[in-house]
Write a protein that binds this DNA or RNA. Structure first.
Lengths: 333, 333
DNA sequence: CTGGCGAGTGAATAGCTATGCACACATTCG
DNA sequence: CGAATGTGTGCATAGCTATTCACTCGCCAG
């Protein structure tokens, strides 16, 4: 009806309460010098008008919006859900809001972050690994603190927190060996993921250190279908592996299902399987998957610390330990 | 180093380019009256300084932030991930940003939305069902368009889009009957969820219409553990059901796993199982779950339409159809 | 009685952009 | 050649809040 309605301003409230605009502002500022009686009158008028202080002018002056942008590549992987949950809690605890941005690839990252700069976001957290130094430099020019997960790039304004992917790969090799594996296989994630690369390298190094032959290899994605495809490939020939390390849990589920349905093989009896992420589902009955818990809360806690750092600080790439959780998929009879 | 650095303003760019501030603004406004040469000079200066137009002043004047707040209760259920993905795409397509807010319960909803009002969000989408009329009225006072999913409350500024939960419940009853079910059970979701209530009511009505006895009942949550618990309860006695409708897929997975592990029973041979949501996992080998696809994209499309409506519009509660997807969990030999 | 002090209040201002208005200049038409 | 149209630019302002500065008033100590 009212063509262009505007929410009530502090001036409106001031008029209604018979005080100055400053008084209204002070009434809403904890610890400001204002008489109790005045504050009460202001609050009554504000309540009647439905007034909420407009945060934008403050942001305009201070350039601090209280908003942190979180960039993700998609939501299909429950691991992102865990990450979002943890970040959501951490940000809320600090009174910050979360602007969620979905981006197709990291090549679009800087254009998006440019847009975000217009909103004066206080910081950016990227679950998307940053792969090109070019994009990193572009972002650094904006002087917005950025934390990337599982990415090795860094710069003046770019920090990163990663799992000890390489060490986990080594540990996977040792475990599979101990549990009786003899022919090893690696179910790979996407090649442009630094985490995938490090896990594979660690696995390869672990095998070599034990004097074992290198692993067979298949896959190329972080999803269920990729694990399924990789398994059909690895088990097509005669020389089948009997111990698999998967780049993540989702792929491992695909592996286990195809082993069972497609080849009549079971974990751990016929094939040992290890995953990565420790999703809720990893504990479910059909899988009981041995996997690495990334300790999302620890990652997030570190990320928050890194965001607080001043620009130019030195220790900008931190590693969070991951914990091996052993379940039935590697425990034989 | 520089204690309080400020990002370059349009005035800074204007000075560098030797033009007025208005010229800079026009250079960044598509369709504005400005000479090509001037625009080029401005763009060069802007590039050199790393200038990004500050969006806040515009928001301050127009009260349109281009930000939509999305409220969720948690991320543990992959159904939320699907919803987020769909909303993210829809909002991006319209050039809107998404402010993600996690809220413990809907009782906190109005206090949070109050906070959001300070950011002048254009609209609020709540995956959290709104249950109290009190909160609804509170929110209406803020004059921010709100769309809730699977909630029956509405008001001047509150619209809702729901699945046809009741009809789906009836359809589940018919299907289970057709497939040979004789003793029916309902694995319930949380009692404060309108969707759960409608699904159960529809199921009960469907059974009654077919002249069948009412269903046994257990459960009370939307998660895996709740489904598992419900199954142990339902199958503890002698009078076991042979056809189960579960409030959602996550619970259904718990049901199937406990049937297999705890009682040596399989779906569909011993027990027919139907879920709700059609998560990716429903198609996986251990489950192959018959379920209802909520068509998230359709929900979101409707939600976007509702957000565009003016206040006081009448048709504010819309229903999106859900589609039965039959898989092996109800297909006998 | 007076200087000082504290509490409470109002006026003025910064912060940045988009836009309406006015003006200067070039071009076209009668 | 005068008028009219069109193009490009600068000036000034709105939008809302937190905060600084200056002011008044009541009160106490000297």
């Amino acid at each position: 009806m009212s063509g262009n309605w505007r929410p009530p301003s502090s001036t409106d409230v001031a008029r209604a309460a018979g005080v100055s605009q400053s008084a209204v502002s002070r009434a809403f500022t904890p610890g400001a010098r204002i008489a109790q009686a005045t504050r009460a009158r202001v609050m009554a008028a504000a309540e009647a008008l439905g007034y909420r202080p407009n945060l934008l002018p403050k942001i305009l002056q201070t350039n601090r919006s209280g908003i942190v942008a979180v960039v993700v590549g998609g939501f299909y992987n429950p691991y992102f859900a865990m990450t979002l949950e943890a970040f959501s809690k951490a940000l809320t605890a600090r009174g910050l809001q979360m602007l969620l941005v979905r981006v197709e690839s990291d090549r679009k990252l800087d254009s998006v972050v440019g847009q975000l700069a217009g909103y004066r976001v206080d910081a950016v957290v990227s679950a998307l690994a940053l792969t090109s130094q070019d994009a990193a430099d572009q972002l650094s020019k904006l002087r917005i603190p950025i934390v990337t997960l599982n990415s090795d790039l860094s710069g003046d304004w770019i920090r990163s927190v990663s799992s000890d992917n390489f060490a986990a790969g080594e540990a996977a090799a040792r475990l599979l060996r101990e549990r009786g594996g003899t022919r090893f296989g690696f179910v790979a994630g996407p090649g442009d993921s630094p985490a995938q690369v490090a896990r594979e390298a660690g696995f390869a190094h672990g095998l070599e250190a034990l004097g074992l032959p290198p692993a067979m290899r298949a896959g190329g994605g972080y999803d269920y279908a990729s694990g399924a495809r990789a398994t059909r490939e690895l088990f097509a020939g005669a020389d089948r592996p009997d111990a698999l390390f998967c780049a993540n849990d989702l792929a491992a589920f695909g592996v286990i299902d195809v082993l069972r349905e497609g080849f009549g093989l079971a974990a751990p009896d016929d094939v040992l399987v290890v995953g990565f992420d420790n999703l809720d589902m990893a504990a479910w009955a059909p899988y009981r998957l041995t996997t690495f818990d990334q300790d999302v809360d620890a990652h997030v806690a570190i990320a928050m610390e890194l965001l607080d750092l001043e620009a130019g600080a030195e220790c900008v790439a931190r590693v969070a330990p991951s914990r091996l959780v052993e379940r039935e998929s590697t425990r034989r009879g």
